[in-house]
Computed example of a mutant assay.
Amino acid sequence: METRCARCNAPLECLASADCWCMKLPPELPVPPENLNSGCLCPACLAAAFEVNKIHKLQQKPET
């Protein structure tokens, strides 16, 4: 199914199943609850979200 990125509005193909391109990525981001899910992200926006999540995790890590 062709849809639009929830963040940048770029066109993307979403299969809404385990066969979707995004399901081949590592599970780095939590899936939002259905009532907060704003839709699919394109590869570029999903990659940016991965980076933000990675930085956030590093900032939360206690110093040793």
Results as ranks from 00 to 15, higher is better:
residue 9 N to K: 09
residue 47 A to V: 00
residue 47 A to Q: 10
residue 34 E to G: 04
residue 55 I to M: 11
residue 34 E to W: 04
residue 46 L to I: 07
residue 2 E to A: 02
residue 13 E to G: 01
residue 64 T to V: 10
residue 45 C to V: 03
residue 14 C to S: 11
residue 19 D to H: 11
residue 2 E to L: 11
residue 49 A to V: 01
residue 10 A to R: 12
residue 47 A to G: 01
residue 41 L to K: 05
residue 11 P to S: 14
residue 56 H to M: 03
residue 7 R to I: 06
residue 49 A to W: 05
residue 25 L to R: 14
residue 43 P to I: 15
residue 5 C to A: 10
residue 61 K to Y: 05
residue 1 M to Q: 12
residue 11 P to V: 08
residue 19 D to L: 12
residue 36 L to M: 13
residue 35 N to C: 02
residue 15 L to Y: 04
residue 26 P to V: 03
residue 49 A to K: 09
residue 50 F to V: 01
residue 51 E to Q: 13
residue 1 M to T: 10
residue 40 C to M: 10
residue 10 A to W: 02
residue 59 Q to T: 04
residue 4 R to D: 02
residue 60 Q to G: 00
residue 1 M to F: 07
residue 7 R to P: 00
residue 46 L to S: 00
residue 58 L to N: 10
residue 41 L to N: 02
residue 33 P to H: 15
residue 7 R to C: 02
residue 48 A to E: 14
residue 30 P to H: 14
residue 60 Q to A: 10
residue 55 I to C: 02
residue 12 L to Y: 04
residue 41 L to A: 01
residue 14 C to A: 14
residue 10 A to C: 03
residue 14 C to G: 00
residue 38 S to D: 05
residue 3 T to H: 04
residue 27 P to W: 15
residue 6 A to E: 03
residue 25 L to H: 06
residue 18 A to D: 07
residue 57 K to N: 12
residue 22 C to Q: 12
residue 7 R to D: 11
residue 40 C to W: 07
residue 6 A to G: 03
residue 33 P to T: 13
residue 20 C to I: 01
residue 48 A to Q: 13
residue 35 N to L: 08
residue 22 C to Y: 10
residue 55 I to R: 14
residue 1 M to C: 04
residue 54 K to Q: 08
residue 25 L to I: 03
residue 52 V to C: 00
residue 40 C to L: 03
residue 53 N to E: 14
residue 6 A to H: 03
residue 24 K to A: 09
residue 19 D to W: 08
residue 42 C to E: 07
residue 64 T to Y: 05
residue 63 E to K: 10
residue 9 N to A: 11
residue 30 P to F: 14
residue 6 A to I: 05
residue 47 A to M: 07
residue 34 E to Y: 05
residue 48 A to S: 09
residue 2 E to H: 08
residue 18 A to S: 05
residue 9 N to S: 09
residue 23 M to Y: 08
residue 15 L to E: 13
residue 51 E to T: 05
residue 29 L to K: 04
residue 47 A to L: 09
residue 16 A to T: 02
residue 34 E to M: 08
residue 20 C to T: 02
residue 28 E to I: 12
residue 62 P to E: 15
residue 42 C to K: 05
residue 43 P to K: 15
residue 55 I to A: 09
residue 56 H to R: 12
residue 14 C to W: 13
residue 28 E to C: 03
residue 12 L to G: 02
residue 43 P to A: 12
residue 24 K to H: 07
residue 16 A to R: 14
residue 56 H to P: 00
residue 48 A to W: 01
residue 55 I to K: 13
residue 47 A to R: 12
residue 45 C to E: 11
residue 6 A to W: 06
residue 15 L to P: 00
residue 2 E to T: 09
residue 45 C to K: 07
residue 50 F to T: 01
residue 22 C to T: 11
